[in-house]
């Protein structure tokens, strides 16, 4: 996109996509990334981006990546929580871009939790 006017072309494309997506808002999967001072300092911004990019690349329209404040365990940042309807919440810790991509592929697409990055409460 070179100028604001170019957004019109994208807009037309989007209108078609959005039309076919009506009624698909059920069964939404949510990925919540901690985006407070602690998260940002630890590298949450590229992690959030990696989640979004990978979900878009795989055309996962039922995945919503959102941001939260401090999740209360700053030393484990960057953190993310995965909410899948009907399943227990999974908390991932000390993430990087690679981990985010792996979570999309293994957990979201194939349904197996990436235990390497899960939070183990001692």
């Amino acid at each position: 996109m070179k100028s604001i006017a170019d957004i019109n072309a994208i807009k037309e494309r989007m209108q078609k996509v959005l039309g076919t997506r009506e009624g698909q808002t059920e069964n939404n999967i949510r990925i919540v990334v901690g985006m407070a001072t602690c998260g940002i300092a630890a590298g949450a911004r590229p992690v959030l981006n990696a989640f979004l990019e990978e979900a878009a690349k795989r055309n996962l329209k039922n995945v919503k990546v959102t941001q939260a404040g401090c999740l209360g365990m700053c030393k484990y940042e960057p953190m993310a929580q995965v909410y899948i309807p009907g399943k227990e919440v999974v908390t991932y810790v000390r993430l990087d871009e690679q981990a985010a991509k792996q979570i999309i592929v293994d957990h979201i697409v194939n349904g197996s939790v990436v235990t390497k990055y899960t939070l183990d409460i001692e």
């Binding site: 996109m1 100028s3 604001i4 170019d6 994208i10 807009k11 989007m14 996509v17 959005l18 878009a56």
Partner: peptide
């Protein structure tokens, strides 16, 4: 941007990534 987009949400991935490169 929102004026141009009218009813399309600005937080759609495709819109966000275009804005980012812009």
């Amino acid at each position: 941007i929102k004026e141009e987009l009218s009813e399309i949400p600005i937080d759609e991935y495709e819109i966000i990534s275009s804005i980012k490169s812009y």
